[in-house]
Nucleic acid binder design. Structure first.
Lengths: 189, 189
DNA sequence: GTCTATACATGGATAGAC
DNA sequence: GTCTATCCATGTATAGAC
């Protein structure tokens, strides 16, 4: 695995567990095992690193959405799989989605990073809107745009809650009513 | 207004807009108009300040919940009012709830602050659980504990989403389906 | 690509005068 | 309670050798 990727991996883990401002090149030095100056060789500034982090995260997320589309046909199944992405991102209650970590401290983000974070969110919302649009059932009667926003908010908030208590069970509890509503719908369809 | 309170106000605003690690005593110095050393006189360490912030926030929140109970009788009205607390805390899309800001970077919090943040969340969940328990309607058939977790996650996530885009309209969109479900219920009751 | 060395600013924090 | 002055660690970043 290339050094560059090792740095990205360590940076992502730290950003998602602590927040972008709460880790330093010294932390990366320890995590990766090379000197700070070498980290700077790969990422000239911390803003560059942050941008690379959210861009890689976006690409991977887009891939994951394509995988969901390939593996699942019904909107119910796709939404359940989407939930799984956020559940996995919790990492046992020790991390949140990078987008959540960045959005929380938005005012301290470099401009390009703030924009990329916003794009990530828009990608997620757009995908969900399409999916809720296909889910034409009485349990979700609202504007698909609103249902998409409500669902993404639920998942992001469930991560924050679980993170606050370092307890993934809170994520599961928060998601349960939605999953049940979805399940009932699935049986009807 | 006492200096101590001015410091708390400035610190809360900065923590909720940027995150705890992303502001310094120098920022407070500018905001309050006294020297760093004077800030240290009021709050010996940044951990002390952070703890004071979340404790004051908790007290105010408990007061707000009591006010809601005084002003509203039905669980529907109380939940709508609760939503208003989180909508107001958005501050035009430029801030999130202090609990959300702290929870997001949990690993970098002093131990006492992490505990107090968790307590805040538990207070909110307990109050919501009681309220959902009273709301005995077909639209919310799940365990009140799960409904409470789902609702708090929705509100916290809606804040994060709105913050990510600096756009309170995203909060409103995310909340709309819940409000509608609640409204229909209210008419039936 | 990685290192040592270093620059330079900032961060949290303290001493002691007023 | 506030100030000036200062300490020392840390943070980001660069120069230049290997």
């Amino acid at each position: 695995m290339s050094t560059r990727i090792q740095i990205l991996d360590a940076g992502e883990q730290l950003a998602r567990a602590r927040g972008l401002e709460a880790f330093s090149y010294a932390d990366l030095e320890k995590a990766v095992g090379i000197r700070k100056a070498s980290i700077h060789h790969h990422f000239k500034s911390k803003a560059d690193l942050a941008l690379a982090l959210i861009e890689r995260y976006s690409e991977r997320f887009a891939d994951a959405l394509r995988d969901i589309e390939d593996a699942h046909v019904t909107p119910q199944e796709r939404l359940r799989a989407f939930t799984g992405l956020y559940r996995d991102a919790l990492a046992g209650g020790e991390q949140v989605c990078l987008c959540v970590a960045f959005a929380a401290g938005r005012e301290s983000l470099p401009g390009t990073v703030a924009l990329a974070t916003r794009s990530f969110q828009e990608m997620a919302l757009a995908w969900l809107e399409v999916t809720f649009n296909e889910l034409n059932t009485p349990e979700f009667p609202d504007d698909p745009q609103d249902e998409a926003a409500a669902f993404l908010a639920l998942l992001e908030g469930a991560q924050i809650m679980a993170r606050g208590a370092s307890d993934p069970a809170l994520f599961d509890a928060a998601i349960r009513p939605f999953i049940r509503r979805l399940g009932v719908t699935g049986l009807k369809a």
